[in-house]
Nucleic acid binder design. Structure first.
Length: 282
DNA sequence: ATTGGTTCCTGCTGGC
DNA sequence: TGCCAGCAGGAACCAA
């Protein structure tokens, strides 16, 4: 599930329970996730204090008191579930791969059925040059992301804009859902050549991306308050999807009849589903 | 160098 | 109702 807004929601849920806490017990239940876990993974985490939790693109970064950073990616199906002190223990499931227990009695589990997720331990001075982080494009909600910057990165790209926005080197944090949603709000067809998104179009796309991600984070945050755990669930934003997974439905921006014009379209681009309105998006 | 297709894995779902 | 093919929100890897 996790794209940038879901990862942001997860770290906001983890912070109050983990920042400042010491890892009293670490259990590693398998040797590999997507990649092999580093040598002595559990032993290196054991006894460390988590100083700060941040995010870069879809990566969770937990800064430890020995200068190492626990790097974590949720992949497609990764979830963090948190059980507070005093809550009833939950049986360990087959996909609970990593279990962290803090000195405050909170228990965090990393559960990932498909095991496309990953964890690594990196010295903080090597973080920027880490092979998974080094090539990432700008944060879409950061100051470095702007119309001219996006236009520059799209220059010369022959692929459709849909594929370019999924490329984490262009902008880091979008996935299949938020690309469809952002292109819809920008009024840009997912089939348009990436290099033709310049000037005002690039400006509109940047605004759309920021707005979609911001609204999704707000919706994720509201579900967190209800469930009081960093569950990795989508929150409420799925009810706000304009086009994603809405094939045949009425376009929220058009007044036309979906029964007559077919409504929202679903196409496949580079083996992934894309949803869009053929009228509003050019 | 880009680009597009394939692949890793398990769990759901939708169509029969 | 039950079964199973096909699809799923990521991204590294490979071949062209």
């Amino acid at each position: 599930m996790p794209e940038l807004p879901e990862v942001e929601t997860v770290i906001r849920g983890l912070r109050p329970h983990l920042e400042g806490a010491r890892l009293a017990r670490v259990e590693q239940r398998r040797a590999d996730l997507r990649f092999p876990l580093p040598e002595r993974f559990a032993a290196r985490l054991q006894g460390r204090r988590i100083e700060r939790i941040d995010r870069r693109a879809k990566y969770i970064l937990a800064h430890l008191d020995d200068g190492a950073v626990l790097l974590c990616h949720l992949g497609m199906s990764g979830r963090m579930t948190l059980t507070g002190p005093g809550q009833a223990p939950v049986a360990i499931g087959p996909h609970d791969h990593i279990i962290l227990v803090t000195d405050r009695g909170a228990e965090l589990r990393f559960n990932d059925a498909r095991r496309f997720g990953l964890m690594d331990l990196v010295a903080s001075e090597d973080l920027e040059s880490h092979r998974l982080l080094a090539g990432l494009g700008p944060e879409p909600l950061g100051n470095a992301f702007s119309g001219p910057e996006l236009a520059r990165r799209l220059r010369g790209k022959r692929s459709p804009i849909k594929a370019a926005l999924l490329d984490q080197r262009i902008v880091a944090g979008l996935g299949n859902i938020y690309v469809s949603e952002s292109l819809f709000f920008a009024g840009i067809s997912p089939r348009r050549s990436a290099h033709s998104v310049q000037g005002d179009r690039a400006e509109r796309l940047v605004m759309a991306i920021r707005s979609v991600l911001t609204r999704a984070i707000e919706a994720g945050g509201s579900s967190l308050r209800d469930y009081v755990q960093a569950s990795g669930e989508l929150g409420y934003f799925q009810h706000e999807w304009a086009v994603y997974d809405r094939e045949g439905a009425a376009c929220p921006g058009c007044t036309c009849d979906p029964a007559r014009d077919g409504g929202i379209r679903r196409i496949v681009q580079s083996n992934r589903a894309t949803y869009y309105c053929g009228r509003r998006q050019r």
